[in-house]
Measured scan of single mutants.
Amino acid sequence: MLDDRARMEAAKKEKVEQILAEFQLQEEDLKKVMRRMQKEMDRGLRLETHEEASVKMLPTYVRSTPEGSEVGDFLSLDLGGTNFRVMLVKVGEGEEGQWSVKTKHQMYSIPEDAMTGTAEMLFDYISECISDFLDKHQMKHKKLPLGFTFSFPVRHEDIDKGILLNWTKGFKASGAEGNNVVGLLRDAIKRRGDFEMDVVAMVNDTVATMISCYYEDHQCEVGMIVGTGCNACYMEEMQNVELVEGDEGRMCVNTEWGAFGDSGELDEFLLEYDRLVDESSANPGQQLYEKLIGGKYMGELVRLVLLRLVDENLLFHGEASEQLRTRGAFETRFVSQVESDTGDRKQIYNILSTLGLRPSTTDCDIVRRACESVSTRAAHMCSAGLAGVINRMRESRSEDVMRITVGVDGSVYKLHPSFKERFHASVRRLTPSCEITFIESEEGSGRGAALVSAVACKKACMLGQ
């Protein structure tokens, strides 16, 4: 009897593995994704193909990295998701002549009506938060230079001027797309009239992360975010950046690689679950690469896999709870928690219980395998993109072996128990001629924006502006 049951459990697990095998990517698959990513990057950089390229390769006008001589107080704003952060950054000489960066910050959550109302409502709310922060720190009387981390696709015309191309991540505030974001912020500050600010720089969160990590390690020339969304930036040779005049030196390019796949480059790798996630998203047909990796989508992918296993009578005796059938019910943090389970399955059992399920031991094991399959594919897909960037940098610099540091931020990278190990191992397999160091950014977005502002202020002083 026991043997029969054991055989049935083994057969069930084997069927589960057959279904989950769809998520496995072979090294040849990853090399294919990497080569296609490089081709799209090239198209994004070139003037004649930029418009139709899915990977936009947006110039950021960040050319210099901090040298350690900029000092002063800077205000930093960070808008990239449902939370908005205001930070005071003091850049100065530390002990023994070292450079020191001290920060104080406060988080504000953005109400739904500000995210989806008008641009005026959104930026009025942001300036209200700045006003509140300055009151708390008794700094209303000071006109501070301000660095703005704005983590949406922007076409820069200068370091302090950028046109919002399109909202992502659930934002829909009308009247912002096609307009200068810094102008919208300046107008809102003017409307309030109770404080003055000098907006000197606007950067993407990947750029802010790279600059913040450069402060720790001067070989950091790539910034990457794996959180709600997924994106990367890197220092490109100016001669390859056709959208900006000049051939000397390097400029940081914001790849906006989340949109890779929007022209069909990933079609052969998309599964039924991916198509369902895409169809029910706020932007169907867009940001397809990001939807395979980002935390906004990972939990939902797992939920759809679990429903398939229920329908195949391989999980929960073929019956799903009402909660499990509800879109968004299986949160991405559950994926991390399930994979963090120590082996007694308590954590998995508790999560499934909150979803109205009474799982068996085998159910718990199957749910864990589903989570591992989805998150491992995410790590491997992400590795193909980064390997594409790094191999490109090595080739354009004609280096036999390139040493490089990548600064990384984002909740999936930082909080998932195995993502970074799987990701690092896969990147290294795909970049055999590179020695890569990964560092995690601390308060990256805010500190990085302030350091970019410090560079901009120093330049302005040198130019006598």
Results as ranks from 00 to 15, higher is better:
residue 162 G to Q: 12
residue 245 E to A: 13
residue 169 K to P: 13
residue 427 V to C: 05
residue 403 R to M: 11
residue 42 D to W: 15
residue 253 V to K: 02
residue 72 G to K: 05
residue 150 F to G: 15
residue 410 G to F: 10
residue 447 R to A: 14
residue 428 R to P: 02
residue 190 K to Y: 08
residue 70 E to D: 05
residue 383 S to M: 01
residue 354 T to N: 13
residue 168 T to R: 12
residue 311 D to K: 02
residue 113 D to R: 15
residue 375 S to K: 02
residue 463 L to S: 14
residue 106 Q to C: 12
residue 125 Y to T: 02
residue 110 I to R: 02
residue 146 L to K: 12
residue 161 K to L: 07
residue 325 R to M: 15
residue 13 K to R: 13
residue 430 L to C: 01
residue 285 G to H: 03
residue 142 K to C: 12
residue 321 S to G: 13
residue 18 Q to E: 13
residue 153 P to K: 13
residue 91 V to D: 04
residue 210 M to Y: 05
residue 304 L to Q: 14
residue 368 R to T: 11
residue 285 G to T: 11
residue 267 D to Y: 04
residue 279 E to M: 11
residue 72 G to A: 02
residue 381 M to E: 00
residue 288 L to G: 13
residue 271 L to Y: 01
residue 181 V to P: 05
residue 131 S to N: 14
residue 380 H to Y: 10
residue 400 D to T: 03
residue 342 T to P: 07
residue 174 S to K: 07
residue 426 S to E: 13
residue 100 S to T: 08
residue 417 P to Y: 10
residue 273 Y to T: 04
residue 312 E to I: 07
residue 44 G to W: 00
residue 146 L to N: 15
residue 438 F to C: 02
residue 424 H to S: 10
residue 418 S to N: 05
residue 205 D to N: 15
residue 444 G to S: 08
residue 244 V to G: 06
residue 444 G to R: 09
residue 195 F to P: 09
residue 422 R to Q: 06
residue 204 N to P: 07
residue 25 L to E: 00
residue 209 T to I: 11
residue 456 A to Q: 10
residue 431 T to C: 15
residue 297 Y to T: 07
residue 91 V to I: 12
residue 162 G to L: 08
residue 446 G to M: 13
residue 235 M to E: 04
residue 31 K to W: 06
residue 262 D to V: 12
residue 32 K to D: 13
residue 349 Y to N: 07
residue 169 K to W: 13
residue 387 A to R: 00
residue 267 D to I: 05
residue 57 M to Q: 04
residue 430 L to A: 03
residue 286 Q to E: 11
residue 199 V to F: 06
residue 214 Y to T: 05
residue 16 V to T: 02
residue 368 R to A: 07
residue 156 H to P: 11
residue 196 E to L: 12
residue 320 A to P: 15
residue 279 E to P: 03
residue 160 D to S: 13
residue 404 I to K: 06
residue 265 E to C: 11
residue 176 A to M: 11
residue 274 D to V: 00
residue 464 G to I: 04
residue 363 D to S: 02
residue 341 D to A: 04
residue 171 F to R: 14
residue 124 D to S: 05
residue 184 L to G: 06
residue 327 R to E: 06
residue 331 E to F: 10
residue 44 G to T: 00
residue 194 D to G: 09
residue 233 C to W: 06
residue 20 L to H: 00
residue 160 D to K: 12
residue 460 A to I: 12
residue 185 L to M: 09
residue 233 C to L: 02
residue 151 S to R: 09
residue 226 V to N: 01
residue 98 Q to G: 15
residue 400 D to P: 08
residue 324 L to Y: 01
residue 134 L to H: 02
residue 179 N to T: 12
residue 279 E to Y: 09
residue 121 M to N: 08
residue 311 D to E: 13
residue 402 M to Q: 09
residue 342 T to L: 06
residue 393 M to G: 02
residue 422 R to I: 10
residue 211 I to G: 01
residue 369 R to D: 09
residue 10 A to Q: 10
residue 9 E to N: 11
residue 218 H to G: 03
residue 299 G to V: 00
residue 322 E to Q: 14
residue 301 L to M: 14
residue 101 V to F: 06
residue 97 G to I: 04
residue 112 E to G: 11
residue 104 K to Y: 06
residue 332 T to F: 13
residue 182 V to Q: 05
residue 415 L to I: 06
residue 338 V to E: 00
residue 124 D to R: 01
residue 332 T to N: 11
residue 237 E to D: 14
residue 226 V to Q: 05
residue 19 I to L: 09
residue 239 Q to K: 11
residue 24 Q to F: 07
residue 377 R to K: 01
residue 269 F to E: 03
residue 245 E to D: 15
residue 377 R to Q: 00
residue 230 C to F: 04
residue 412 V to R: 07
residue 158 D to P: 15
residue 151 S to Y: 05
residue 458 K to G: 06
residue 263 S to W: 02
residue 57 M to S: 01
residue 259 A to H: 06
residue 312 E to Q: 15
residue 165 L to H: 15
residue 4 D to H: 01
residue 48 E to H: 05
residue 246 G to V: 03
residue 333 R to C: 08
residue 118 T to L: 02
residue 451 L to R: 14
residue 170 G to S: 13
residue 311 D to I: 02
residue 367 V to T: 10
residue 446 G to K: 09
residue 456 A to G: 09
residue 308 R to F: 04
residue 77 L to Q: 01
residue 389 V to A: 07
residue 297 Y to V: 12
residue 96 E to F: 15
residue 148 F to L: 12
residue 108 Y to N: 10
residue 282 A to V: 13
residue 387 A to L: 02
residue 400 D to R: 10
residue 143 K to F: 05
residue 376 T to C: 11
residue 432 P to L: 04
residue 43 R to I: 06
residue 433 S to T: 09
residue 191 R to D: 05
residue 13 K to W: 12
residue 56 K to H: 03
residue 449 A to D: 09
residue 383 S to P: 01
residue 183 G to K: 14
residue 374 V to H: 02
residue 126 I to W: 02
residue 104 K to N: 07
residue 237 E to V: 06
residue 153 P to I: 04
residue 20 L to W: 15
residue 402 M to P: 09
residue 68 G to N: 11
residue 214 Y to N: 03
residue 250 R to V: 06
residue 247 D to Y: 04
residue 158 D to N: 14
residue 294 G to F: 01
residue 44 G to R: 00
residue 392 R to C: 04
residue 36 R to M: 04
residue 357 L to P: 03
residue 352 L to A: 05
residue 370 A to Y: 00
residue 202 M to D: 08
residue 303 R to W: 01
residue 278 D to G: 01
residue 264 G to I: 00
residue 189 I to E: 02
residue 386 L to P: 00
residue 452 V to N: 03
residue 463 L to A: 14
residue 419 F to A: 00
residue 222 V to W: 00
residue 292 L to R: 04
residue 293 I to S: 12
residue 189 I to Q: 02
residue 162 G to E: 14
residue 145 P to L: 05
residue 45 L to T: 03
residue 465 Q to M: 08
residue 127 S to W: 07
residue 201 A to C: 07
residue 293 I to H: 12
residue 275 R to M: 09
residue 103 T to R: 02
residue 165 L to F: 11
residue 379 A to L: 10
residue 167 W to R: 13
residue 305 V to T: 08
residue 419 F to L: 03
residue 218 H to K: 15
residue 72 G to Y: 01
residue 236 E to V: 04
residue 187 D to A: 10
residue 447 R to G: 12
residue 181 V to I: 12
residue 254 N to G: 11
residue 178 G to Q: 11
residue 454 A to Q: 13
residue 386 L to Q: 03
residue 94 G to Y: 10
residue 385 G to M: 04
residue 436 I to N: 00
residue 24 Q to E: 14
residue 199 V to Y: 10
residue 64 S to A: 15
residue 212 S to Q: 06
residue 196 E to N: 05
residue 119 A to N: 11
residue 112 E to I: 08
residue 217 D to P: 06
residue 335 V to N: 01
residue 395 E to D: 15
residue 341 D to H: 11
residue 39 K to W: 08
residue 231 N to V: 08
residue 52 E to Y: 10
residue 168 T to P: 10
residue 455 V to C: 12
residue 4 D to C: 06
residue 373 S to H: 07
residue 30 L to A: 14
residue 159 I to H: 12
residue 450 A to R: 06
residue 321 S to F: 08
residue 183 G to Q: 15
residue 305 V to M: 08
residue 197 M to C: 10
residue 441 S to D: 06
residue 274 D to I: 00
residue 327 R to T: 13
residue 455 V to T: 11
residue 216 E to P: 02
residue 376 T to V: 09
residue 257 W to T: 02
